[in-house]
Nucleic acid binder design. Structure first.
Lengths: 150, 150
DNA sequence: TGATATAGGACCTATTCGGTCCTATATAAT
DNA sequence: ATTATATAGGACCGAATAGGTCCTATATCA
C-alpha cells in the first residue's frame, strides 16, 4: 500500500520534462531520450497518459505529445490513475462471507474514510508541486501538519 | 497505490473482533470462526501480526493470541506493515539510469513528502478508530479537512 | 505422556506488473 | 500519389508478487 509503481515513477519523470517546456510538442523518441525510459515503455506510458486526459496527442509526421492542461491543473491523483487504473481503497463485495459479518462494513467505512483523506492529498497536489524545487510543506494551503513520522 | 490488500482487510476484521473483547485469549480456530477467514490464512495472519508486535501469543494447550497494546496504541500503519511489509513510497537506487537524471531526485523528493503525509495519517489513526462506529471526521484532532473528493 | 496450541518454514497457484512487439491509421513532405 | 514519420490500439510474454495451503517442530496444560 502507498507504494509508487515503477511505471508511475517513470511517468512522473517524463511529465516533469514536459512541464518544464510546456509549449514543445514532444515525440516519444525525444522523451525516451531525455528521460532514460526505454522507448517501448515510454510509448506505452504516453498512450496511457493520453487516455487519462493528462496529455494530448497530435498524430502523423511531426506529431507528438503535449500537456493537456497547465501543470497546476493536473493532480497527481490523475497521473497515478492514468497509469495504474482507478484506485479504491478496497472493492467491497468481493468476499461474500466477510460482507455478511456484522461489523465488517463498519470497519470498511473507516478504511474508506482513510482512503478519502489520502485522496484529498493526492488531489490537492499537482504536477506543478512535483516539479517544484521547494518542499510541499512550504505551501501553507497544502500543508497537512508538521510531522515527525519516520 | 493506496489499495488495501485482501490480507490486510482480513487482518483488520480479526483485530476488530479481538479489540472488542481485549481480555480474551483467542485461539486461531476461534478467530477463524468469528471472522469467516479460512483457518490456514487466519493462522498465517496471526503469526505476521505477532512478528509485527500487534499481537502477543501464548504457546501450548489453551494458548492463543491477544492484543499487544490497547487499541488506541496500535496505529493502522503498524497493522498494514505487519501484513504487507515496510512501505516506502519508492526505493531509490533501483534504476541507475533514472538516478543519474538531473531532476529525478528532486521529483522523488516530492513524492516522498507526499508519502510522509500519508504516513502521518496512517500513524495517527489507530485500531480504536477502526472499530469505532463514528466517522473519523468527527474527531477534530485527526481531521485533515472537510473534503468533497469523489 | 498425550492433547492442544503456536512457530516457522516450504511450497504452489493465480494474478498483476513490467516490458516488448505488431499492425493500423493519421499527417507532412516530396 | 507516395513515402517517411508519427501515434493508436491491441496482443503477448516473462518475472514478481499476492493469496492460500501444508508440514514439521516446539511449548504448555491436563
Amino acid at each position: 500500500m502507498v507504494r509508487l509503481s515503477k511505471l508511475t515513477d517513470y511517468a512522473s519523470v517524463i511529465l516533469a520534462q514536459m512541464a518544464r517546456q510546456p509549449d514543445v510538442l514532444w515525440s516519444a523518441g525525444q522523451l525516451s531520450g531525455e528521460s532514460s525510459v526505454p522507448k517501448p515503455t515510454c510509448i506505452k506510458l504516453l498512450k496511457l497518459l493520453v487516455k487519462g486526459d493528462v496529455l494530448t496527442s497530435t498524430q502523423g509526421a511531426r506529431g507528438g505529445y503535449s500537456l493537456a492542461k497547465a501543470p497546476s491543473q493536473i493532480p497527481v491523483k490523475t497521473i497515478i490513475e492514468a497509469i495504474e487504473g482507478p484506485m479504491a481503497i478496497t472493492e467491497c463485495g468481493t468476499d461474500e462471507a466477510l460482507c455478511r459479518l456484522t461489523d465488517h462494513c463498519s470497519v470498511m467505512s473507516r478504511w474508506r474514510e482513510l482512503g478519502d483523506q489520502v485522496n484529498y492529498i493526492l488531489t490537492k497536489t499537482t504536477l506543478e508541486d512535483l516539479i517544484s524545487p521547494h518542499t510541499l510543506y512550504a505551501r501553507s494551503d497544502r500543508r497537512i501538519e508538521t510531522l515527525e513520522v519516520n
